[in-house]
Design a protein around this nucleic acid. Structure first.
Length: 673
DNA sequence: CGTTACTACGTTTTT
DNA sequence: CGTAGTAACG
């Protein structure tokens, strides 16, 4: 069981490489949500229960708005926040009758009402949202004793990856799927806990030894992935977290000694870079320069025999990736953007999907309202209200109320069309069994017909603006559907696995992605870009302090440790965000990750011992006579000139921002008096 | 009902 | 900057 789709793919890859595809396929492997959904489908078929549908996040938000909007004239309630609370509520296995006192309720005390009507709306749709997938699975495991015991005996062993990121409901699920003697194998690293905002609960991993008395803990301190310098950089950062298990990682793959020579390079007055062998720190004037350097480095790396697929550019949030994208384009470097705008999210695709959904499940009212209104059929909110009224009075579905509402030729036309597609929808993928026809109705054919009949094709073909790319997107979408046998699996894929690249897409491309989506992956060369205060750590986490900052630091740590051979950390003085130039200080994590400059003086300048003693004495004197901290003081360095002390740490290291903007770590005794 | 033009806004991260 | 929401008009 994995946490993200990406991790699941990676796991599958490694498993197949290890034992071969045939054997590997006998393992049930997937995300918590993916596996549970698979089991739920199986269960409901076995019990002869009707199909339920998955509700994606857009649809969730729609429901919340429907519920909250009428009582929210003054717009005090944030719909997204309410949805968020509902999700956290489910993740944490809270009890609606008994909300915890510290429960953050953005609806000012109305949460219970909102939640209950949200759930009843889901029930009307016969739908499950993400949280419900796990909750429903738990429910049937507990309530159906026979099934529960069947499931507990079903697996020889269970392996949970990234255990630190599990939330309460996932934890309980694991408990319900296992029994003594436990054959449960959990892999986790508390330093990589980066999903707390999504309900991940550190107590899950911390409490494991207590809950399972027979638990054997194996510390994995030997790191096979990264070079010593990369590992050192990671450690310099993560050791600043107060709240963590102590562990000392060492690099086993590289017995060579740690490079101590700091190389420096200044390409202009503002752009500056230092490196210790395979770790490069780079400060730049702006995000444009940053992108330029990254791309330049990639070109060189390719010349030196690295492959595109082994290079990744990691960023905190997908919003800062556009400059880098532009540059990659400009240099014709093949790349893929992971976690950016997924093409399922384009309006055209969503429109088409809503038609597929309503054809598949005629009770899907969310899909109905969307599809009915695009293309325009003169049916707005008033008409939908009328439909609701009829369906309420007559006890029919919304769809079936359309002919009863009368005098709407376009709506009736829509109704007839959906009905006809609905009739054939279940025979999609069945060989020759579709009525009189002996031809197989494939998914792509079905979708293409729907695309034309709905009128969507007309809109796009007659559009003036970027018609070709819109048509192209639709074509790729239809193309993608070719990989699925029926509507069920295709629609499930769209909500559960949306945005995943097809495997062949990954080959031979540089990856540009968020640090979050890079988790569990590794690359020869990693660029960690945008290491600035306000970006990483995010603006919010800085103000929030404590917990959130530590999570930001862990995110940085995860980013650094994706690198196997080379790591480039960069920050910019100026960056273009939301149409504005913003100036940010170098990230505190950038500063923490800097190698101590002391190694430079070690190799280059032999200092007379006397002088050193003298300086030390001065320092001592200073610390005794004046206030303890040098922070904020202006100092002078023999080779770097004047600067301001940003930070002082216990081991006599000062982080100094020099006049030219370069940030460095120097030894205290290098200060000129 | 649908379109346009404007304002406010907030800005992670994922199943 | 893009987008979501709204007010006003055709």
């Amino acid at each position: 069981m994995t946490f993200t789709n990406k991790a699941s793919l990676e796991m599958k890859d490694r498993l197949f490489n290890m034992v071969g595809e045939e054997k590997g396929k006998t393992v049930q492997l997937g995300t918590f949500h993916g596996l549970c959904w698979r089991w739920i489908i199986g269960y409901r078929i076995k019990k002869n229960l009707s199909k339920c549908i998955l509700i994606d996040d857009n649809e969730q938000l729609k429901l919340v708005k429907e519920i909250v909007r009428p009582d929210n004239k003054d717009k005090l309630i944030d719909y997204k926040e309410v949805l968020e609370s509902i999700q956290r509520f489910k993740d944490n296995l809270y009890d609606i009758q008994n909300l915890p006192t510290d429960f953050k309720d953005p609806s000012f005390g109305n949460f219970k009402t909102i939640y209950l009507s949200y759930q009843s709306k889901l029930k009307e749709l016969n739908g499950l949202d993400f949280g419900d997938i796990l909750l429903y699975m738990l429910k049937i495991l507990e309530e159906d004793k026979e099934y529960g015991s069947y499931m507990r005996n079903r697996f020889h062993s269970i392996l949970v990856d990234e255990f630190q990121d599990t939330n309460r409901s996932q934890y309980k699920l694991i408990r319900c799927l296992t029994k003594p003697p436990y054959n449960l194998f959990c892999v986790g690293d508390d330093d990589q806990l980066i999903y707390q905002w999504r309900g991940a609960n550190i107590d899950n991993i911390r409490g494991l030894p207590k809950e399972f008395k027979e638990l054997t803990t194996i510390k994995l301190e030997e790191n096979y992935r990264s070079t010593p310098n990369i590992l050192g950089t990671a450690n310099r950062v993560i050791c600043n977290n107060k709240n963590r298990f102590e562990k000392k990682l060492y690099a086993s793959g590289y017995k060579g000694k740690i490079c101590s020579k700091v190389m420096e390079n200044r390409s202009s007055d503002l752009n500056y870079e230092s490196s210790i062998g395979d770790v490069i720190h780079r400060q730049l004037d702006n995000d444009y320069d940053e992108a330029h350097h990254i791309v330049q480095d990639i070109v060189n790396a390719i010349k030196n025999g690295y492959s595109y697929s082994q290079i990744a550019i990691l960023i905190r949030s997908s919003t800062i990736g556009s400059k880098i994208e532009e540059k990659l384009h400009l240099f014709s470097i093949p790349f893929r953007v992971v976690g950016g705008k997924k093409f399922f999210e384009y309006k055209d695709i969503q429109d088409l999907i809503s038609y597929i959904k309503i054809s598949h499940s005629p009770t899907h009212n969310l899909a109905l309202s969307r599809s009915l209104q695009t293309p325009k059929r003169g049916c707005g909110t008033a008409y939908l209200e009328k439909l609701k009224q009829i369906s309420y009075e007559d006890g029919t579905t919304l769809l079936e109320s359309i002919p009863k509402a009368g005098k709407r030729p376009k709506a009736v036309e829509y109704y007839e069309m959906i009905k006809s597609f609905n009739e054939i929808s279940s025979s999609v993928g069945l060989c020759g069994s579709a009525g009189e026809s002996s031809e197989t109705l494939t998914l792509p054919i079905f979708i293409r017909n729907l695309y034309e009949a709905s009128g969507l094709k007309n809109i796009i073909d007659n559009s003036t603006e970027n018609r070709e790319s819109r048509q192209g997107r639709i074509e790729s979408f239809i193309d993608l559907s070719n990989r699925f046998n029926n509507l069920d699996t295709f629609l499930d894929y769209l909500t559960l696995v949306s945005g995943i690249d097809s495997a062949d897409d990954v080959d031979g491309r540089v990856s540009l992605m968020t640090i979050h989506s890079s988790k569990g992956l590794e690359f020869d060369i990693v660029f960690l870009a945008g290491l600035e205060e306000g970006i990483l750590p995010t603006f919010n986490s800085i103000n929030d302090g404590g917990d959130k900052l530590e999570e930001e630091r862990r995110i940085t740590y995860v980013g650094i440790t994706r690198a196997k051979k080379k790591l480039v950390l960069s920050c910019c003085r100026e960056r273009f965000v939301h149409g504005k130039v913003v100036r940010n200080a170098p990230s505190r994590f950038y500063i923490e990750s800097l190698p101590p400059i002391v190694s430079l003086t070690d190799t280059n300048i032999k200092k007379p011992k006397k002088q050193k003693k003298h300086r030390n004495f001065n320092k001592l004197e200073k610390s005794l006579t004046t206030e303890n901290s040098l922070q904020g003081k202006i100092i002078k360095h023999k080779s770097f000139g004047t600067g301001v002390v940003i930070k002082e740490d216990e081991s006599d290291l000062l982080t100094v921002a020099f006049k030219n903007g370069v940030v460095k770590k120097i030894e205290k005794n290098e200060i000129q008096n």
